[in-house]
Design a protein around this nucleic acid. Structure first.
Length: 406
RNA sequence: GUGGGUGUAGCUCAGCUGGUUAGAGCACUAGGUUGUGGCCCUAGGGGUCGAGGGUUCAAAUCCCUUCACUCACCCCA
């Protein structure tokens, strides 16, 4: 399947490394794991992510269940997690929830570097606190996780999108600004003007970019509370020594975001898709999904992108190597080796055995290729005497042992 | 959905102004005397040259179509 990969030990080891680091940090911050279904009702995403977003309007894998319900493969997981928390009564006005998840997401896009149709996200959701300190804690958690990984320089960019009404006013102002300039905009932006004005702000076209420079800034449309919230978040980050940039052009493609939004961006190694983690506050989402009016903040990180970064930065996860290779020189030794194979494995050792009846030399080569730590050659002599020689394949040293001592 | 690039042994690629049995490095297999790896040496196995069609006396090499992979746009993790 296009954009959906088969993964092997080498890839999976690195993923496991990324995930284990995340789990460790997230749990220290008080988050606990949650898992929700890959399939959800289509309407869930229409209501939360937004009907007119690219994700919902053209990137979802949808199907009809046998009873006629429209369902889909989840394109992201915030909606599903909030739905799960609401349905299980795990959030209320005075009960907070801190959860994280790891799982596959699906979006039908053209694959490219750092973009797949089936990809894995590590995400976290923190519901129940409207306080800017929650934002700070949340950002610090992601920062701590990422800075613990050898993935090169990561830049944190933050912005505030305000409350829905504030953003609404801003969008109106933005449209009013760009509309007279329509014929000066690139074709994409002329379309964006109608569908997604915010996107106009980070168009790569030079002309558009210039025009965008003089466009109104969201920051002038934030109310007192939103503004203060944003300022407090910034001060908190500074206080923690977490470097960040403010960008009034940072836009996120999902409708549910309010106030603080952020992206952690890789400075090199990822090509065009360089956002490694992104997220923001979504104060109205729980209510929108039929739950209590509880604010929240969340984020999602792309595991495959992080794996790419680790590889670019020279990280290589070593495959597991055998503790011992059993090598046979003749039928008697072979039988003994085969017996020992299971006895030793049952003691918890990683032991290798060659099922091809080959020369000792060939078997030794295999042991070397597998990077076995030690090799033990068994034949008539050893079976009869009960003594054998174990060779350390790193140092070349040998030592004599009694077979009964194994 | 749009645009660019690439498709030759398991891997990385050379060959591509058309011409005898398609190559290299690495990997793999077996040997280098009697039961011991890594280095080195020798030999060997392995390829419908992505697929289909066309041009030609002759195509991996030219043309068309198609598929796959890849990068980028859109957008996003």
């Amino acid at each position: 399947m296009k954009g959906m990969n088969d993964l092997f030990a080498k890839d999976l080891q690195t993923r496991r490394f990324v995930c284990s680091k995340a789990i460790h940090v997230f749990e220290n911050y008080g988050f606990s794991e949650i898992q929700t279904p890959v399939l959800e009702e289509l309407s869930l995403f229409v209501r939360s992510v937004g009907e007119n977003t690219d994700i919902v309007s053209k990137e979802m894998y949808t199907l009809e269940d046998r009873d006629g319900t429209k369902i889909c493969m989840r394109p992201e997981n915030t909606a599903g997690v909030v739905r799960a928390l609401v349905e299980n009564n795990l959030i209320s006005a005075d009960q907070e929830a801190k959860v994280f998840y790891i799982g596959p997401m699906f979006r039908r896009e053209r694959p490219q570097k750092g973009r797949l149709r089936e990809f894995t996200q590590i995400g976290a959701e923190f519901l129940g606190s409207p306080a800017p300190s929650a934002d700070i804690e949340f950002l610090a958690m992601i920062h701590d996780w990422l800075s613990d990984l050898p993935i090169g320089k990561i830049k944190l960019v933050v912005n505030s999108l305000g409350q829905p009404d504030e953003r609404g006013n801003y969008l109106t102002a933005l449209r009013a600004y760009f509309e007279p300039l329509t014929d000066k905009l690139c074709a994409d932006c002329q379309r964006r003007l109608k569908t997604n004005v915010l996107r106009l702000l980070d168009c790569k076209n030079e002309n558009c970019s210039k025009l965008a420079d003089a466009a109104p800034s969201i920051h002038d449309y934030l109310g007192e509370e939103s503004s203060a919230h944003f300022q407090t978040v910034q001060a908190g980050l500074r206080n923690l020594g977490i470097a960040f940039e403010i960008s009034n052009r940072l836009v996120r493609g999902l409708d549910y975001y309010t106030r603080t939004v952020f992206e952690f961006i890789a400075e090199s190694g990822l090509g065009a898709q360089n956002t490694v983690a992104g997220g923001g506050r979504y104060d109205g989402l729980a209510k929108e999904l039929g739950g209590p009016d509880v604010p929240g903040i969340g984020m999602a990180a792309g595991v495959e992108r992080m794996v790419l970064l680790l590889e670019e930065n020279g990280y290589v996860q070593e495959l597991k190597r055998p503790d011992l290779s059993l090598i046979s020189a003749d039928p008697a030794g072979r039988q003994k080796a085969f017996d020992l194979l299971f006895a030793l494995r049952r003691k918890g050792l990683f032991v290798d055995f060659d099922h091809k009846e080959r020369s000792v030399k060939s078997q030794m080569r295999r042991a070397d290729r597998l990077r076995s730590k030690e090799a033990l050659v068994l034949g008539n002599q050893e079976v009869e005497s009960g003594k054998a020689v174990i060779k350390n394949l790193e140092s070349g040293e040998t030592r004599e042992i009694r077979l009964s001592d194994l």
